[in-house]
Design a protein around this nucleic acid. Structure first.
Lengths: 225, 225
DNA sequence: CCAAAAGTGTTGGTAGTACACCCATGA
DNA sequence: TCATGGGTGTACTACCAACACTTTTGG
């Protein structure tokens, strides 16, 4: 029962970054080949015969952008027959998070960060993929502490608040937010204070205590904001 | 930039059924070819060049089991290079639900329903796929009313209670459950009464009002039990 | 001393949970 | 009349949402 099959398998990476000044952003590349030559697109590429899907995503992303992904998770697979105008290409999309230091791009690479509210025209069905990724990020950040993967290892509490407000796109009460998050116990206050940039009282820096988190995770936490 | 790629693309279907007597069950087929000849496995098959992924699942499932799927949703994609001992096969897994009438199988087909708590040995990584599917079903049934897709179109309320208890694997308070579900308003009480099978007071039959549901869905419902 | 951001507690409302008795039917 | 399953209301609790003033720093 040999079946002839002529389908190519690709991966795409929807990678989010966040800084207080830039907001929630996506890293895109400019296509240098047709179709959609010159159009912005998600980084990715074909899967090699002997590499895992995760490896394919990480490799493709690194090759095309020079940036290393910090958190990676499978998003969804896209397989409509017409999604690539030339061949049948099924793409397994992943979404990833990088810390703010990933925002510095090598000048030689044709990649750029775009705020999620100001995305350019996109190749293929990449706009759909991105919309699904944004929805997933919004949903996931409310029940698992993945937000920390978008911040520096140490951060003032206000950065976390702003991140949540940006991702969820609504205001959040500062006091309730802190109460709720501190109750889980996996956020540790360091003795260091924030470096001032402008006026205002400097806050303490916090860090995410991964070990503590994995312990409390077993019992199933409710992280809703 | 022609890249030689030798990866086959398959789909697998984790299809759940439920009856009060059989409990939550999965439809499996017995493999008639090597590898794993004679072992139970998930229905599925290779994707054809010009069909969508969903079509491939539905077609493969129908061919192998004779049963029509009632609700279908993509689950996850499995791509470890060693998951098939012969070739590289990436499989996009779906999970589906069928109503109780799907439990009647044609005698000529080598398929059978197995209670999820008493599964046989399985081919490939299908056990992993099933575990993920069960987790997804448990999670999803608490925030979207997919449970109705596992029951007859009209059912006594107790059937819904029992379904939730079976899927979630814990006892549920009858009164609170009814209060909560009725509050959403998309469950309609018919004037008919349950046909008795044994003693006890017969209950009214209910049906799921899809239109009403899609209206209330917009505002985002919380369906937690 | 003024502007900017950080830190912190209390109260009221609501939604969820726990809980037990009566009713309709078949045998 | 007994056994089986169906139907229903109340009271308590715990969590969430709303809300404002004081403190620290830089200019």
């Amino acid at each position: 029962m040999t079946v002839l099959q002529n389908i190519k398998l690709a991966v795409d990476a929807v990678v989010f970054g966040y800084t207080a000044t830039e907001g929630l952003s996506l890293l895109l590349i400019k296509r240098d080949a047709s179709p959609f030559k010159g159009t912005w697109a998600l980084p990715g590429g074909l899967v090699k015969d002997d590499e895992s899907l995760e490896n394919a995503v990480e490799r493709g992303f690194r090759e095309e952008t020079g940036v290393t992904i910090n958190y990676l998770e499978q998003l969804y697979s896209f397989g409509q027959p017409e999604r690539d105008p030339r061949n049948r290409v099924v793409s397994i999309a992943y979404y990833g998070l990088v810390r703010p230091d990933g925002f510095n791009l090598q000048a030689s690479i044709d990649a750029a960060w775009f705020n999620v509210k100001a995305l350019p025209a996109l190749a293929f069905d990449h706009k759909d993929i991105i919309n699904i990724a944004i929805g997933r990020l919004k949903a996931k950040i409310t029940y698992e502490p993945i937000g920390f993967e978008l911040l520096d290892r140490k951060f003032p509490f206000s950065a976390l608040e702003k991140l949540y407000q940006t991702v969820l796109d609504r205001p959040i009460d500062r006091r309730n937010c802190k109460k709720k998050i501190m109750k889980f116990g996996f956020l540790e206050e360091t003795k260091e204070k924030q470096q001032l940039k402008g006026s205002g009282r400097p806050g303490f820096l916090y860090k995410f205590d991964e070990k503590h988190y994995f312990l409390s995770k077993e019992e199933g936490i409710n992280f809703e904001i």
